[in-house]
């Protein structure tokens, strides 16, 4: 049953991801991205990462995608011919890489597969969200703070690059 869900979710993710780049109309691209985000959230559920699944839906499907839609609609991007000059080269290189990865994947022996990490025993007791919060503020405190700096840079960077009369006073 779990395997069936995995293949269903993975299949839809690959299909919709391809549609995102293949569709001509940006609105359709964004909508297929939305479907992809939901299925990725589904993958997280099968991995017992309920918190991640919820964040995926709220942040990506909710906030980021709406932002995309706004931009696409505000800029009034019409259907475009994209990628055409480079398509053959890109397709060829992509095919080479896919073949190589597939060859390597099928080369694997059963014994090569690393043991599945045991499902977090803590998670069973105190719950998924609590465990993540606990780890974020103890073990991964340092990277967590660095991530906050990255957000700071992004915020100020957007202002510097976009604010209208920033340079005029000089």
């Amino acid at each position: 049953m779990g395997l069936f869900f995995f293949y269903y979710l993975a299949g839809v993710i690959i299909l919709t991801a391809l549609l995102v780049v293949a569709l001509r109309n940006p609105i359709y691209s964004v909508l297929s991205l939305l479907i992809m985000f939901f299925h990725v959230a589904g993958l997280y559920v099968t991995l017992h990462a309920e918190f991640l699944a919820a964040v995926q839906v709220i942040v990506y499907a909710g906030a980021i995608l709406v932002l995309y839609l706004f931009v696409v609609m505000l800029l009034n991007v019409k259907r475009e011919d994209r990628y055409h000059p480079q398509l053959p080269i890109g397709a060829f290189l992509g095919l080479v890489i896919v073949t190589e990865v597939l060859l390597l994947a099928f080369q694997r022996r059963e014994s090569d597969v690393p043991p599945m990490p045991p499902p977090g025993s803590v998670a069973q007791v105190v719950g998924n969200t609590e465990t993540i919060g606990d780890v974020l503020y103890t073990t991964y405190l340092f990277p967590f703070e660095v991530a906050s700096l990255i957000l700071l840079v992004a915020m100020i960077g957007a202002i510097v690059l976009a604010k209208r009369d920033l340079f005029e006073q000089q």
Binding site: V146, L149, I150, V153, A154, I156, G157, V160, L161
Partner: peptide, 8 residues
Amino acid sequence: LMSLSLYV
């Protein structure tokens, strides 16, 4: 963190 600052 390095790259994002450099992009700006």
